[in-house]
Nucleic acid binder design. Sequence first.
RNA 1: GCGGGCGUGGCGGAACUGGUAGACGCAGCGGACUCAAAAUCCGCCGUCCUCACGGAUAUGUCGGUUCGAGUCCGACCGCCCGCACCA
Length: 892
Amino acid sequence: MPPRFDPSTRAMSQEPTQERASDRYNARAVEPRWQKIWKERGVFRTRNDDPRPKFYVLEMFPYPSGRIHIGHGRNYVMGDVLARYKRMAGFNVLHPMGWDAFGLPAENAAIERRVHPKEWTYENIATMREQLQLLGLSLDWDREIATCDPSYYVEQQRIFLDFLDNGLAYRKESEVNWDPVDNTVLANEQVIDGRGWRSGAVVERRKLSQWFFRITAFAQELLDAIDTLDRWPDKVRLMQRNWIGRSEGLEVLFEFARGEAPAGADAVKVYTTRPDTLYGASFLALSPDHPLTRDLAGKNQALAAFVAECKKGGTSAEEIETQEKLGFDTGLKVVHPLDDKRTVPVFVANFVLMDYGTGAIFGCPAHDQRDLDFARKYALPVVPVVLPPDTDAGAFAIGDVAYDGDGTLINSGFLDGMSVPDAKEAVARRLERFRVGGEPQGTRKVNFRLRDWGISRQRYWGCPIPVIHCESCGPVGVPRADLPVLLPEDVTFDRPGNPLDRAKAWREVACPKCGKPARRETDTMDTFVDSSWYFLRYASDNAQQPLDKAAVGHWLPVDQYIGGIEHAILHLLYSRFFTRALKACGRIDLEEPFAGLFTQGMIVHETYKDQDGKWLFPEEVKVLGTGKAVKIDDGTPVAVSPPEKMSKSKRNVVAPEAVADTYGVDCARWFMLSDTPPERDSEWTQGGIEGAWRFVQRIWRLVNEAIELGAPAAANRPDAFGEPALALRRAAHALAAQVADDVERLRFNVAVAHVYEFTNAFASAVAAARGAAPVPADLAYALREAAEIAVLVISPMTPHLAEECWATLGHEGLVAEAGWPRVDAALLRRDTVTLPIQINGKKRDDIVVPREATTAEVEEAVLQLESVRKALDGRAPKRIIVVPQRIVNVVA
RNA sequence: GCGGGCGUGGCGGAACUGGUAGACGCAGCGGACUCAAAAUCCGCCGUCCUCACGGAUAUGUCGGUUCGAGUCCGACCGCCCGCACCA
């Protein structure tokens, strides 16, 4: 083990004879003691019948992947600061923790290390629970849950049956990534460059019959309610709006040209949001999955081959849309809906998604980039039909870039001269009147990009879907009395595919309806289902009633939810759907689960590689500054790369235990809150943690000095305060007010800066007191008051240090149970203000005026200023702008 | 491809709703204390001109609105993130 910087041992070795015990704060000894006391006294246990106003703080629960590194700790520490602060501010705080415990990594571990997913998961939970407890988080561990526990997922199975009964769960066919070598379904992340991550085989898209939740039934509602989420980041709200993707458009029927209609189809239905560009249509494109494509491919070998080619590669939108645009000319032609003399060719194209709209589009190359790329490739006409404003029609031509802006219609028959919105309306009106086979040729249609949520996973380690398939009765819900459907434990992972398919004894059951032999559903639920209601589970302190309507009514919505931006769409949208769906089923009375949302950034760290290109742990490296570093054991040079997300594979991780041993947990907490705004990525550095260590020591020293020099605990307040006692009191009360505001707004880095600012003032006051003998009574009082306020204020951030200081100050109770310091508003008010004086917008002077000075008084005073008189040089000012209590600008 | 975000000293960043740009911390430099070092304390610290007082300039680039722009608007450049089976 390489030597590590250890400030406490370094400090211990120096002149121990001159030190008093109080000179050094020994976090390693102090922190476990307070954690034990918190635990023994049950300080953070929450009761549902507590009469104080509620506040629910929740950080997104972790996946138990093994061990946590310090990077995982940031959002828990931020949540903890808020929870501790809110407790001090008089709230009954719910701050629970649990485990998102189902999922793919456990199965990978089972395959790679021959350990059962359950065993692997629970071992990880035990390790990570201990690590989280090390951070001193004020969590109610009595409410801990794990989603893989039958006591949790039994309720999830009941919810599934509720959804089934209410038409919110159904089966349909959908595509998956299929690995033809491993014979297994792959997650998008398991598809790398179109190949399976384990087998390397080219991935195919394949259809399977799967379970879906009808989230689209709430599409409009989910969209509308985003407006009410005013304590969510705008960014997330926008991402959700775009994800739901409401569009208003027109479904248009394109009839096949005479004599060309393939069997069973007279027309193709196309969805468009740009009916105004209809005259610019130069082709029609069908999705490779369109029913018509399938019919045609049955009779056309070349088309079948093309469709097969399209099915290669993954199912993600990213892959589909970045592929080269490919088309296959079917040879068929359709008649232009607005001009029966024109026909356009029908292609099958790989970029047309079956899941959106009708699975068929018309292409207007001039005004859609994808269509333009396609048209150029297949030499189709490009006719501009929208002329940008202030453009000459003769000079306007489309090159490589489509024009999707506003303008005036051209080359468009009866639409010529109209604006885009007018043309949209005119086309809709006309096509609504036209008939094709008795149907209107055009139908206005609101479309959503949002698709129903496919929850089937062909995997073992997930919540079993409580359904039995019967030859005669079809899919039948498992009777509630028979729940939970437990995962069978005697399964093997030595072969590819879903072990549940092979668990014969478990799979083969009698049909609950007719009693005939039937088989269990072997798909399990997407783990997003597990995380769509866990925040409701915490509200109930009763394991028998995991989803308790009254408890949910009391605690929900979550007042502050904290988690990574990577969950901005799916997890949050699914959870919003779930509360609505549960309400529709009568289970709860809640629509929006999260009133406040905060998305925190990650902790990043530099990466190090030795001369052989091997990754090195930070503790193996000595950083010399100026970007250079060497290996500690042999002094060879180390390549330093910019900070990135902590990950085991790159070894740029810091273990919480190591930080706790060397500096103490409070230093880690303080550092995680310092400097960087919480929503941004923050870099973990040696310098930073050492700065935190200096701060902790400084507070300890100052508090002890203040005790020595200050008034005793119960001293009476003097009637009058002179400077500098008044200045110190002002600083202390301002600190309490500022930090309260900073924490409420989750601006932890600013709170830290305010504490530093105060600490500097406090240190000056202590130094002044040390110089005065005896210390005047007013300053003595102010010193003690300042020390107490400081300790209370830092306690949400560095709770162990605060408890130790609080006890040293002579208090019997715990800081964890103390109230936030009462701020004396009179101390924050100033009688005079300093106004900066600008001349022509540049600052030239300052002026001190009474706080209540009128504009006229300020103007008069400003004109007397030497600097202003000089600048005006006898002339009258053109203008004087006085912003009360802010600034004065003299326009000369 | 589609969607979203972010650019301020050597570094992390502060600046409430358009009102003194650079708070606070890190690093650095100088000094005190010390036999010496560490720790601690004091001072300096965007750039340029000036002995100094002070002035000019400065928030990715260019332009606009305004008495006044880091903040608002437009264009551009650069970096980052998400995209439905990772959680």
